[in-house]
């Protein structure tokens, strides 16, 4: 029972104080899991994180699910995922319901317009980080090839992202290995 409580606390705190999405809360999760509750060593945590990053889907819930399962089985996984997801989701719904209520107010319209450039820059910065990762990993030539091909496929040929992603994974498995 105490183990479930510890799992709840360990994943609740990173979910409440972690800004910038799941990847940003990873160091906070590591602190709880490795330093405070000592469920894993730093090395084990790093290994699980690396593998989690090679698999699809959001990282915070994958880590919570896996570590929760290791510590407390299916119930442990459920507790850890709930602690990660629920608090921030409730805040999100309350705030957006309020916003939806005043959707036609000129102030809310102005707000929407003013924050959009900031959101665009946030996405552009994120894009840049992925380009940088790719440059370090696959080199300039391969990065240019992949960027050009995926841009043409998505923008000019209107191919669904699913096929572009599967294509890139195949390219990586065959050419970059």
């Amino acid at each position: 029972m105490i183990e479930y409580w510890h799992l709840f606390i360990a994943f609740l705190i990173p979910g409440i104080v972690g800004y910038g999405g799941g990847p940003a809360s990873i160091p906070l999760i590591e602190y709880e899991v490795v330093q405070r509750f000592e469920w894993m060593t730093t090395q084990e945590f790093g290994e699980v994180l690396a593998l989690g990053n090679a698999l699809p889907g959001p990282i915070a819930t994958k880590m919570a699910g896996y570590i929760g399962y290791e510590v407390g089985g299916v119930i442990g996984a459920t507790v850890a995922i709930s602690a990660t997801v629920i608090p921030s989701l409730i805040a999100m719904i309350v705030l957006l319901k309020l916003l939806l209520k005043f959707k036609n107010s000129p102030k809310v319209k102005r707000m929407t317009a003013l924050i959009r450039p900031a959101i665009a820059i946030l996405l552009a910065v994120l894009a840049y980080q992925f380009f940088a990762t790719s440059y370090e990993g696959a080199g300039l030539v391969q990065t240019m090839i992949l960027v050009t091909l995926s841009f043409l496929a998505l923008e000019k040929w209107n191919i669904h992202p699913a096929y572009v992603i599967i294509g890139a994974l195949t390219y990586g498995a065959v050419i970059l290995s």
């Binding site: 552009a124 894009a127 992925f130 992949l146 960027v147 498995a173």
Partner: peptide, 18 residues
């Protein structure tokens, strides 16, 4: 190889949305 090939594609998608 698969991990490094996916990064530039994600970059392009994020850039297009931006």
């Amino acid at each position: 190889g698969m991990t490094s090939a996916i990064a530039p594609v994600v970059g392009v998608m994020l850039f297009m949305l931006a």
